[in-house]
Structure formats: structure tokens, C-alpha cells
Simulated scan of single mutants.
Amino acid sequence: MLMEAITGGEPGPVVVESNGRRAVYFLVPAGSAAGKAWPAGVGVLNAGSGRVGYVPIPALSGRTWPLAWYFPPTVPGRFVHVLLLLNAASALLG
């Protein structure tokens, strides 16, 4: 994963979905994804005023299929850095 390489193995909390569209959710600080020019193929949840969305979060332990932590949270308040994520998404998706 590019985010893992960019961050030295600790990109922040990332959730993956094992069925359906196999979504990947990068947990970023609230509001930090709004107003960014995300490439086609990236869906931003709760990024604007009046928008409603949700991010499914699995339990830290136990069975939570179809959700799993690709990178579990390590410390309180640690998120994926939104500008690193934007650059990685742009590099991969154009």
C-alpha cells in the first residue's frame, strides 16, 4: 500500500470491506477532506455542509466480517494525514 510506504508503515487507521464493492475507508479528521480536488473514483463521506454519510467501523477485536482493520488505530487522536492521502490517491488514480 502506497500510504504505508509514504508513512514508514504507520498511515493511521484504515478499514477495509471484504464484500460488495470492497471499499477502503481512510479515517481522517472531521472536515479535513472537504474542498479538496479528489480524483475520480474517490468517494468522500461527510465532506460538506448538509451532507450525510457514515463510515462503518469494525470492533478492535473479534469477528466483524465483512469489515476489518487494515491498519488499526494506534493512539487516540491519530488519523490518516489528508494531504498525504490526497497525493497518494492522485498518484494512483490520476
Rank of each mutant, 00 (worst) to 15 (best):
S18D: 08
G50D: 11
G50R: 15
G12A: 03
A40R: 10
G50N: 13
T64P: 06
G53K: 07
V44F: 07
G62P: 04
A34H: 07
P39T: 09
L60K: 00
R63K: 09
S18W: 04
Y25D: 08
A47I: 01
P56T: 00
T64Q: 02
Y25K: 04
A47Y: 12
P29M: 09
P58Q: 08
A37D: 14
P11Y: 01
L45F: 14
R21T: 02
K36I: 12
A37H: 06
P29K: 11
L45W: 15
V15D: 01
S32T: 14
V44C: 15
V55T: 13
P29I: 04
V16F: 02
V44G: 06
G31M: 14
V15M: 01
W38T: 08
L27H: 00
S61P: 02
G48Y: 14
E17M: 10
G31I: 15
E17A: 05
P39E: 08
G31F: 13
R22K: 05
G43W: 05
L45V: 09
A47R: 15
S18Y: 01
G53Y: 07
G20S: 10
A59C: 08
P29R: 06
A30H: 10
G41C: 09
S61F: 09
G48W: 13
P29E: 13
S61G: 09
S49C: 12
G41K: 10
L45R: 14
Y25I: 06
L60V: 00
V28Q: 05
S61T: 06
V16P: 01
L60S: 03
V42L: 04
V42P: 06
V14D: 00
R21K: 07
W38F: 10
L60W: 00
G20E: 05
L60H: 05
P58S: 13
R51K: 15
A33W: 04
A59F: 03
